[in-house]
Design a protein around this nucleic acid. Structure first.
Lengths: 340, 340
DNA sequence: GATTAGCACTCGTTAAATATGAGTGCTAAT
DNA sequence: ATTAGCACTCATATTTAACGAGTGCTAATC
């Protein structure tokens, strides 16, 4: 167990290091207003903190820096859950309101805001349309052999795909197919749509099958395309200002990783957390993020569960500020109404 | 005017430098099989080439490197227009064919291919929908107060937007509005759509206006959103392998510039070239690209003019190979059929 | 007259030598 | 239990010297 003084010192080391990115020495600490002890006393406590694995030294004659365990302790015990600052949240809400009412744009705006607020890189993941349900299927002919299949979800998201017929198809057949699909499949989740269309085809009478099978399979292939959830990166250039990313060895893996959209999406989707969660350094389980920490949270828009937003910075990130800003953004998003 | 030997030397210097990224000295050149002269002779010619501004030296005791003027001369006189390699183009066409028939995906694939082929970064710009014309407008109700407005272009591209009504609108009014718009506006270019809707509203009888104005303005606002042409970046990480981008001073401006999607799109759209064009260093007129060269070309897909594709590398790029690969990709795209 | 060998000179790069100083751990005094 | 004092460590910065690739010029050669 830590003594009060050790706690004070640990906190001071981390706060200082977060600000300066320089190892913190005992003399520097003893000059702080909130630490009235001599540097020797502090040195003794620092040795203890090091034994406990909370801090470490880059080399013999340097000051101390927090270890991952130290950051973890700091986040768990020293970052108090802060109250929502009503005024600030209001301001954020206002800025979101002004940008747009289109959810896609709102989310981008939220990511940009969060990034501006913290100077870290943010990633926002939109709704995973696999979870939404079919509200309507429609078909728009373009010319004799081409047309656009439209799939609208209950959330108002639209997917479309241009299809070609191998030969001319009678308009009645198309109309009837669409009617059939609308009758039978509205309410089905998008993820299951492909399978369900297959089932419907199987259920057709032999006579009908000849007519409709082709058309339905065409639509089935349309649905088959996995529609990736929309991903948005905000403040990517912020990383350039972080002292720990001033060398290619650290910068390159990070940039290469974050530009890999599919992997990034998958990673965000795999995070199981509903509320604000902090993941530190190697806890991320990703080599490219071993010197980064991530604050993630699911968010709701206008009350409905929507997606995930993440903030990525060096392990030496300002957790207190980051967590607070994250809280305010998701609160502002929650309050944002999509309609007027 | 250049003597034959000077031409040979200039070519050798540029070829060598493109490969090694190291200043080329007279002794190195004299050891080449295609240069049979002594290093002293070569030195004399090099001095002449330098006087003409075609090559320069980084410092007194280094070899020579090509100047921008030198690269320009090289590209204009020393890179012969190469024939399309039928076999290779066929292979590319095959790989494109296999990926998809969706134009968006095809273009991404083309950019990735070009990037793999050359190890440079590529940018592909899809069709600018402003130029396409309206094929159909439609509306899909979602619930009492929400619906999706769909705009389909003659090329089969779809834009959609969810709209909210302030109060319930009679289905007949909606239907009639859509009918009206379809009657009057099909064939209008997307760029002009907003203005044209305004004109139609103005033309309404006073009685009708009350009914439809609201609805039409809602649709107008939908169209108003500038639909950015689709942009795709391929092989962004290739830049990390270029020796001239191993320092943050050069890397950072480049990465910051290329991540600015709007600016990038605008830049690509502003290029007036129909055929393959090479732009070297400061010719680009962009600070972030002052040490880069760009090979751009418009491309057609299945015969129809479609968009622009660009290849970005250091000024020390392999122009010969780059131009050739660019030619083959746009040829492969031209031959790719969208339907079967 | 064109080419080439020879040589002094330049200057960026690398390596070794040295100095600096922030910070530590330990011991003894308070 | 705390603190002053001091020897010791080690990354960083600075200086110096050695190195060598490449040049320009001159004089000899074809």
């Amino acid at each position: 167990m830590l003594t009060d003084r050790q706690l004070l010192i640990l906190r001071a080391i981390i706060d200082d290091y977060i600000q300066t990115a320089q190892p913190v020495g005992s003399r520097t600490l003893s000059k702080r207003d909130d630490l009235t002890f001599s540097s020797a006393t502090i040195r003794n406590d620092m040795a203890d903190l090091e034994d406990m694995g909370l801090i470490e030294k880059p080399h013999t004659s340097a000051g101390r820096i927090p270890s991952e365990i130290g950051y973890r302790y700091y986040v768990d015990h020293l970052v108090e859950k802060q109250m929502i600052d009503e005024q600030e949240t209001g301001r954020l809400e206002e800025r979101l309101r002004q940008s747009s009412k289109e959810s896609e744009i709102l989310i981008r705006q939220a990511a940009d805001l969060l990034s501006d607020l913290t100077n870290y890189t943010t990633v926002a993941l939109g709704p995973n349309s696999q979870m939404e349900t079919l509200a309507r299927v429609d078909f728009m002919p373009l010319d004799e052999r081409r047309g656009v299949v439209l799939i609208v979800t209950d959330q108002g998201h639209v997917e479309h795909r241009t299809v070609m017929f191998e030969s001319r198809v009678a308009p009645e057949v198309i109309e009837e197919t669409i009617r059939l699909l609308n009758d039978r499949l509205v309410g089905t989740s998008i993820g299951q749509l492909k399978i369900r269309i297959g089932e419907e085809v199987a259920r057709l009478q032999l006579a009908q099958r000849q007519q409709y099978e082709n058309m339905m399979q065409l639509i089935q292939s349309t649905v088959g395309i996995q529609t990736p959830s929309s991903l948005y990166l905000g403040g990517k250039k912020n990383i350039f200002n972080q002292p720990e990313f001033q060398t290619l060895d650290t910068l390159r893996p990070f940039l290469e990783w974050i530009d890999e959209q599919d992997r990034l999406t998958h990673w965000l989707e795999s995070l199981p957390n509903r509320e604000i969660y902090v993941s530190i350094g190697s806890e991320n389980g990703i080599v490219a993020l071993q010197h980064c920490s991530v604050i993630t949270s699911d968010y709701t828009l206008d009350g409905e569960t929507f997606g995930t937003i993440a903030m990525i910075g060096p392990t030496r990130m300002d957790y207190r500020h980051g967590v607070q800003m994250m809280g305010q953004i998701i609160e502002a998003l929650r309050r944002t109404k999509l309609d007027e």
